[in-house]
Each structure stands twice: as C-alpha cells, then as structure tokens.
Nucleic acid binder design. Structure first.
Lengths: 346, 346
DNA sequence: GAAAATTCTTGGAGCGCTCCAAAAAATCCC
DNA sequence: GGGATTTTTTGGAGCGCTCCAAGAATTTTC
C-alpha cells in the first residue's frame, strides 16, 4: 500500500505537496496537481490513510456504545428497548456527523474493549459492573452511564424507576386490584427465579440498580393500600425469555394484576395468556415498562410505564460528544393507560 | 494527557519499559513494575493510547456499515429490514470480537465518510451510487455491496428478487387472482408516485436494481397467466410511508391482490385495510417481501417472500473481516404463505 | 572469582500523516 | 533589470506507540 512519500517520490515532489493535493488542492499549481493526481492513480494510491491523520488530530469522531449488562450487540439490536437505545444514539451521531461504534464485549473482554476502543467516549448501557466504570474512568474519556448512578463525578442518565413503579401500582390498586404478581428482570442468563410469598427479605437475586429501585417503588405503593410486598410472588426472568409468561401463570394463578419491568416481558405474558385462554384484562391485568412501540400494538394494547428511550440515548450521545461537565440526569416516566388493565372481575 | 514517555521520565525508566509494564508485565522485574505502575497512577496515565498502537498495527478491527440509499443510521435501525441487517452484521462482529461502526452519511458526506472511516472494510447497504462504489474501491479496503451487483471485481450479496416476485405472482394467480396492484419502493424521499395502467413504458421512476429486478419478475410471471404488467397500477412509496396503504386503496379499488416489495409496506396496507373495513384476505389479498418478524405477527399474518436478512449481513461482515477474494453471492428467497392471501371473492 | 548464561532495560526506527516556518519559484512594479 | 511581493513547494518535527537488536545488570556455573 503506497504512502504519501511513495507518491511524492514517484512524482518528483515532496510528501507535503502530495498531502496538499489531497487536502488543500487550491494550494497547488493546477498542472502540478494534475501530474501528482495522475501518479497517485497510477500507483493505486487512494488518498491519505486516516490512520496517519488520526494520530495527529487525536479525535476519532466516534461514540462507543457498550450494551447493558451481559448482553451482546446482537441482543441489544434485537430487543425493543435496546433497539430504541441504539436508535437514539444513532440520531445524535447522525446529527453530529459522528460514527456510532457498537463495541463488542463478552464478559471477560469488556474491560479490554473499553481500553482499546477507537472512540472519543462511551455510552455504557448499564454499568452494573464497578470494574467497567473504573476502566472507563481510567481511559479518561467522557462516558455516560445509563440507568444507574455512579456518583457525582460520573455522567449518568436514569429514569425515575421508583416513580414509574408507584404509578403502576396506584393505577391498578385504584382499579380495585389486591392480588398482584411481579415480574422482574433477571440480568444474567438462566431460567426463571421464583420467590413465593412469605419471605421477608424481599430482594432480587439478580438485578440492576434500576430493578431494585422499581421493586422499592412497588413496595412503597403497595404499602399505601395496606399490602405488603412480602405477600406477593416475585419472579425474575431474562427480558426475552419466552417462558416468562408460563412462569407467571404457573406460579401465580390467583393474581389479578401482573406488573412487569419491561414491555418485552409483558408481551410474553400476553402471548401466554392468549394461549391459555386467559382473558386480558378480563381475568388479569398486565402492565409493561418502557413504552416501546411494540407495546402499543399488542392486543390488547399494553398499559405501560413509558420513558423516552431514544431521547435518553440521544442525550447520552450528546453528552459524550460535547464532553460536558459531569451531571446526573433523572428523566421522568409516564404511565400510559391502554387496554391491558381494567377492574378485576368480582 | 500524559504519554508513555512522560511516565517513563517521571519513573526514571525508559518508554520501552513503561510499555512493557502495560503490555507484557511478565518481562519487567516486579518491584520496578510496581514502581512504574504507581507513577502512572499518580500521573493519571490510563494505559497506552490505542491511537499510537493503531498506527503501528494498522488494523482497526472494525467493520463499517453504511445504510442503504439515502437512509440514515436511525432510519435503518428503525426499519424492520434495516434492523435485521444491523443485527446480522452485529452477530458476525460479536463472533469475531470486532466493532461494528455505523457510518454516518448524508448524501453529500457519504463519499467523505468512506474515505475517512476508521474501519477495515465496509458493508454498503445498497450502493445504487456508482460514485460510492468508486470511492470504496479507491480506499482499497474490502467491501461488500448488498442487494446490487457491481461486477465481478466487487463483492456483492443479493437475493433472488426476480424469483421471489415470480413466486408471489404464481401463488396469487394460482388462487385465482387476476386484478393486481403493485406497491414498489420509492428510494428517495417524497410522496407516493402513482403510475396508472395504460402506459407501456412500465418502469420505476425511483428504484434500486433490486426493485427493477422484482418488477421484472412480476412482469414475467404475470405474462404466464396472460396478464400484462402494463394493465396493472404501479405505485412507488417510501418504505415507512404510513400513507402507502391509502395510496393503494384510493387508486386501485378493483384490485383483489396487492403485491408489495417490503413487509413494512404490506403492514401499512393491512393497517389501512383494517381502518377502511376492507377484509384481508376476504376482499383483498396482500403479500409482503423480506420475511421480517413483524410479518408473522400482523393480523392476519402476512404471506411474504422471505429472505435471511440477518444471514445476508452476517455473511457480508464475514467477507469483510476475512477479506475473501471477490465473489457475487445470490441468496435464495422462499415464499411463506400465511393468512393474508386467499382465493378472491367471486 | 571470573566467565558464561540469563534476565532486564534501553532507545532508535518506524508506522502515515499534518502542520508550519522557511526556502524556492514565479510574478509584479517602477 | 532588479528588488519587492506573492505564490508554491519543501522537509523537519511531532503525534504515541510497538518492536527489536543491543547493551546493562544480575544470576549461575565451575
């Protein structure tokens, strides 16, 4: 692969002139320019290699996106939530003329990926992992953590998960529901984890900060109605797990209201309900979380706690690109009431 | 930002030793290593900057993806087809431990983007643009063009669009349909373009090679039944255009079978039909193209010409990563018959 | 205790480019 | 024509790093 020097030598001019021919052609006498261009073409030189420039300029003009938790990029693009995230980041990058780099990371290569990624900053999908944050800090590039807080030194954008959970409970309790089941997100691979009522140490086995926060919201709002979280079945499944619905109906036949932590889970529940001939919302009400497009198109359409997912990622990308001073943003959520919730059958 | 040299100077060792501390620590005497590490920490040095290494190593370990036509990355991620494409490319990159760079490109910055992108090769979503291909060639990096052929020198992966179109027509004709309408893809922004019957120069105003190929498939298969493409309304709309359905029903009230060039369009048609109280497949049959997930979940589920979109992108990414000798791949399509097509009402 | 073997550290070369001050060439002006 | 201007071209410095041959220090061996 020829270099500027090669072309210069072949054309009998200096490296600098060849560089000018490509980058500031107006500086070079037309006939010389023509000649150099001809030589370059003959040598198969396709213009200055960005690698060289890079070292000099020091900017990649790229934002790195690392998927939440243990998910792969493919998982992310496949999930309704992850897709919106990528979409939002893409919008901001589009607008800024930057590249969005989907940075790969299996559990053990993540740290290395952060150390090596050719980007000007990162969006960390959800840095449950302190190591990861430390690694990002070490690299001294701007980065933003989504959905968890890592202190005042670090950019983070979260949603009001507690408030969303409270809104969901109040809505259902207001309709008259008293028998609930909660479907939480298992953040590691594996089958459903089922916590049946009775234990008082109601905590998620596997969950991100956001999940715990939402659970706390459920707890508080249930208390308002005199209900205890301890008396409610709690199930943890991975977001796309098609058996989530089955786990709920098998373990919680009495529940009249199922509250989930993601639309994707809620959609699975709806599908399982349809399969079992359980009427939603006649027999059981279901709520989602996130407000993805899919949630509006289920039958019945899903009542869900909506957030502006793409907006969140867009903001994150902007913060990275502008390298703003650290701040912690909490975005609002909004309960969107649709057809999947109704009064419980008497 | 401190460099290897800075750390070396501060620790009283050479640059080379500091480099070893980070990259081959086993080569450095433990106590020296400790000392250097301490100095590095004190200076806030976060490890060797990948920029430097890059120049030496020469590989970005990244695949660039440039969206088809005039679409932005955001458009791509939003569309069912584009999303599958990104998904497939992501899978291949995940597997190879590479980064997937979604390369931004407005119409006028595309060429520059290709020239500058920090990648080892490209997937060009659909290089209708000869300029683009030339630009990619010039850069001398491996690249693969999706859905159009650019000659034997250039990697390309297409589908058998003609065959798919023929299968759709034969299926519908076999059911007894004789009054068709065709919904093609407009590849530039703008409202629906409507070609009413009668003109003999049946050609798409705006379309990629693939679209013309599919149209040709329709033409040939229609001829088998003694029908002429010239007698059939032909409408071009952008893929996500929500008014595509309206354009069809307004202009082709007599059609009993509507053939589209993408599931997304077909879904719009179904939605419009539902809105107008037109029964599918009772009043009118509808076929999609692509076989996206969405197509299986409409009501009625969509009969569609399915392709392995993710597989196509996966193969493309692999070809880029392995830098295989040029080849032109044509992938098969398969008609998937579902509920959106039936015999026409008598 | 000195030579040999081993382990550790060094610093130059080079990756391909851009920037820029200075040199060279061309043009202008009286 | 010759000095002053203006336009072009040059090539060194430097971006941060890795590689590697060679030198220095340490350990082993007899």
């Amino acid at each position: 692969m020829p270099t500027l020097d090669d072309v210069g030598r072949a054309a009998g001019v200096s490296r600098g002139t060849v560089s000018n021919v490509f980058n500031r052609p107006e500086l070079v006498r037309p006939e010389l320019r023509k000649r150099v261009e001809a030589v370059a073409r003959a040598l198969g030189y396709g213009g200055p290699d960005p690698k060289g420039r890079l070292l000099k300029e020091g900017k990649f003009n790229a934002v790195g996106f690392m998927p939440p938790g243990a998910y792969s990029i493919a998982d992310t693009v496949r999930s309704p939530y992850g897709r919106e995230l990528v979409l939002g980041a893409a919008q901001a990058c589009d607008a800024a003329g930057a590249t969005l780099s989907l940075v790969n990371g299996t559990d053990d290569t993540r740290i290395a990926s952060i150390r090596e990624a050719l980007v000007d900053g990162f969006i960390l999908g959800n840095a449950a992992d302190i190591e990861l944050v430390a690694s990002a800090k070490r690299r001294r590039l701007p980065f933003v953590i989504l959905d968890s807080d890592a202190g005042p030194e670090v950019n983070s954008i979260r949603i009001d998960g507690r408030g969303g959970a409270i809104a969901a409970v109040r809505h259902l309790a207001g309709l008259g529901h008293r028998r609930f089941a909660i479907l939480s997100i298992r953040r590691t691979a594996g089958p459903a984890i089922v916590h049946m009522p009775g234990r008082t140490d109601r905590e998620l086995l596997e969950g991100f900060a956001l999940d715990h926060e939402r659970l706390d919201g459920f707890r508080r709002a249930l208390a308002e109605t005199g209900l205890s979280l301890d008396a409610i079945p709690l199930i943890e499944t991975t977001p796309g797990d098609p058996r989530a619905g089955a786990a709920v109906f098998d373990n919680c036949p009495d529940a009249t209201a199922i509250m989930t932590m993601s639309d994707w889970q809620a959609i699975t529940v709806l599908a399982e309900a349809a399969k079992r001939g359980i009427d939603v919302p006649g027999d059981v009400s279901v709520t989602g979380f996130d407000g993805t497009e899919e949630a509006a198109r289920t039958s019945p359409p899903l009542t869900t706690v909506a957030q502006d997912i793409a907006g969140k990622a867009r903001l994150a990308a902007e913060m990275v690109l502008k390298n703003t001073p650290p701040r912690q943003v909490v975005l609002p959520v909004e309960l969107v009431v649709r057809g999947s919730t109704a009064k419980p059958r008497l």
